[in-house]
Design a protein around this nucleic acid. Structure first.
Length: 588
RNA sequence: GGGGGCGUAGUUCAGCUGGUUAGAACGCCGGCCUGUCACGCCGGAGGUCGCGAGUUCGAUCCUCGUCGCUCCCGCCA
């Protein structure tokens, strides 16, 4: 049997055609002399009719059909009798009258129904991933993923970019995330690392003169998982020569416009707005603001500068901050709801959450007695407080205040339905600090990565005040999710060496780790820069998925295991011997 | 490393203050049924209550440990 059509593709226009379908039994409705079988393939579902009066032999065979049997059906497409159309199916206007049935394979009863709505425990889904992947939603997600990848390649190809592969077995780079290591058999005691990104290779390609590079590439980071993080993930990696920040931004905006138009049929407005890191932190408390709704953070530190209230006083004396959000109409929140919000911010290190309801132009609040009339009016002004609003304050170290309120804002935005789910709001975040001081390490670390160039006007400060230097770095944020980030790189060896020095890396150490790059920089390196996009996260947003596992065919659990293959697994001692590896004693 | 949630039939869940035979729905099996589409009707099977200790006359329920899945913090661009 050869397929003539996919089940889900058939429409009214196909009425009268003889078709051959290959697929799975979704559901069987046996009415006795008449059997309806919903038949499924990757395009969708169509109803097949087995009628004992049309063909008793085929009808009898159909009685043995069960869920997930693999079948081939020959039959005639007909319009359904009046009043029996099913508006829930794309194929609902027609059905296929079967004239021939071939059972290609049987199936055990599946452990769960192959339906989108069926909510099944994650471990069951992952163990039977091949069944879970039969669900229409996951099939659509992977089809969408394919289409986006295809359009990425079309777009870059048209602009003269070359897709060039880079090694999976490469050198460990201690900066950044933990590496996955691969032992070398031929060089005992030595290890490759799987790439966290092709960062250095794409810069080398620029030095080689390839000018415009991109790659859809797998990357690996051995860090703990989240709902949007897997240990292996995919990036759209890009690097260009002879460009400034704006050139890369416009190129990537073009990519987004192209993808959204080709894949979703959505027209985006470009160029995208831009916001400095400083402004983002000030107004939203994060470097990846969701600008689809308001409820912005407001700084009330100055208004409370002379407050005797110990919570405020301590925050100010320790050079912290006091910020607040105004939940419009939040006066209706119950005591318990506000308590829950307090617990919520404590997840982010806040000691507590202070609240005030506006009732008849007055504060209803446990802290009212510590607030002067003047302070109250100032704060009402800053927060644009009105009747029945709920003001929420967090005081403490600046980072904690921002993180608490940023997350609280998102939490409340979702809870109150303030986020328009159908909007795509992009924003560039620019002017990131180049370096930040790491208390634990006792040295400066790169905010982006160590190859990022300082802004020209800040270059002077690099020696004396490295903390004030801003970088030629940019992140692209979509609906509160960081989908891409990049920078202009250091193409001058002396600048790169100086950055390494500021990172506390001696010349010798820098030579050992990145000597090949420093050396390459001395052989005519063009100015260059690039960006990397989180491909999985982009697909998550485009498919409205809540978990990254729903956009990856074979994802890992939160502990990094694959429940289908049962990786990782022990290996036999012969394999270890060849790799010169001896395991430490472990508790059974 | 830390905090939260979940774990009972194939699946999703209920199970009172610890008490006799652990329930429901869907699914599954058998029978009937020619316009169903969550088909309907009749009948039936199906349980190591994640695992291990402890408390108790008695544990699905309480305590401790452990395993698995998940969300978050730390970590991670």
């Amino acid at each position: 049997m050869k397929r003539t059509d996919y089940c889900g593709d058939l429409r009214e226009g196909d009425a009268g055609r003889e078709v051959t379908l290959l697929g799975w039994v979704q559901r069987r409705r046996d009415l006795g002399g008449l059997i309806f079988v919903e038949m499924r393939d990757r395009q969708g579902i169509v109803q097949v009719v087995f009628n004992s009066e049309v063909d008793p032999e085929v009808h009898e065979k159909a009685q043995s059909l069960r869920s997930e049997y693999v079948i081939g059906v020959k039959g005639k497409v007909v319009l359904r009798p009046k009043g029996t159309a099913n508006p829930k199916l794309g194929t609902g206007e027609i059905e296929v009258i079967a004239t021939s049935l071939k059972i290609l394979n049987l199936s055990k009863t599946p452990p769960f129904l192959i339906e989108d709505e069926e909510e099944v425990a994650e471990n069951t889904r992952l163990k039977y991933r091949y069944l879970d992947l039969r669900k229409p939603r996951l099939q659509q997600n992977l089809i969408l993923r394919h289409r986006v990848a295809r359009e990425v390649r079309n777009y870059f190809d048209r602009l003269g970019f070359l897709e060039i592969e880079t090694p999976m077995l490469t050198k460990s780079t201690p900066e950044g995330a933990r590496d996955f290591l691969v032992p070398s058999r031929l060089t005992p005691g030595h290890f490759y690392a799987l790439p966290q990104s092709p960062q250095l290779f794409k810069q080398i390609l620029m030095i080689s003169g390839f000018d415009r590079y991109f790659q859809i590439v797998r990357c690996f980071r051995d860090e703990d998982l989240r709902s949007d993080r897997q240990p292996e993930f995919t990036q759209i990696d890009v690097e260009m020569s002879f460009v400034k920040v704006e050139d890369i931004q416009r190129t990537m905006e073009g990519l987004m416009v192209h993808i959204f138009r080709q894949v979703l049929g959505v027209e985006l407005e470009a160029p995208f707005p831009s916001m400095t890191y400083e402004e983002a932190m000030d107004r939203y408390g994060v470097d990846k603001p969701d600008i689809r709704f308001g409820m912005e953070l407001r700084d009330v530190t100055e208004a409370l500068r002379h407050s005797p209230f110990h919570v405020f006083k301590e925050a100010i004396e320790t050079k912290g901050a006091i910020k607040a959000i105004n939940v419009k109409g939040g006066g209706v929140f119950s005591r318990k709801e506000v308590d829950d919000l307090t617990h919520f911010v404590q997840n982010f290190g806040a000691k507590g959450l202070l609240s005030a309801k506006i009732v008849q132009n007055e504060w209803q609040s446990s802290i009212r007695k510590f607030i002067t009339e003047e302070e109250r009016k100032a704060i009402d002004g800053i927060l644009d407080a009105g009747e029945n609003d709920l003001l929420l304050f967090v005081a403490g170290p600046g980072g904690v205040v921002n993180q608490s309120l940023a997350n609280l804002r998102l939490h409340l935005g979702a809870k109150l339905g303030l986020i328009p789910e159908d909007q795509y709001r992009f924003v560039w975040i620019v002017d990131f600090p180049l370096l930040e001081y790491d208390e634990k390490e006792g040295r400066f670390v790169a905010v982006h990565h160590p190859f990022t160039a300082p802004k020209d006007e800040d270059l002077e400060k690099l020696r004396e005040h490295p903390e004030l230097v801003r970088a030629k770095a940019y992140d692209l944020v979509l609906n509160g999710s960081e989908i891409g980030g990049g920078s202009i790189r250091n193409h001058l060896e002396e600048v790169q060496s100086l950055v390494f020095e500021k990172l506390g890396m001696g010349e010798e150490e820098a030579r050992e780790r990145f000597g090949f790059l420093l050396e390459a920089l001395e052989y005519g390196t063009p100015p260059h820069g690039g960006i990397a996009f989180g491909f999985d996260r982009l697909i998550m947003i485009l498919s409205h998925s809540e978990s990254i596992r729903d956009v990856i065919a074979f994802p890992k659990t939160q502990k990094g295991t694959c429940l289908m293959t049962e990786a990782p697994s022990r290996v036999d001692s012969k394999q270890l011997d060849e790799l010169w590896i001896k395991l430490k004693e472990m508790k059974a």
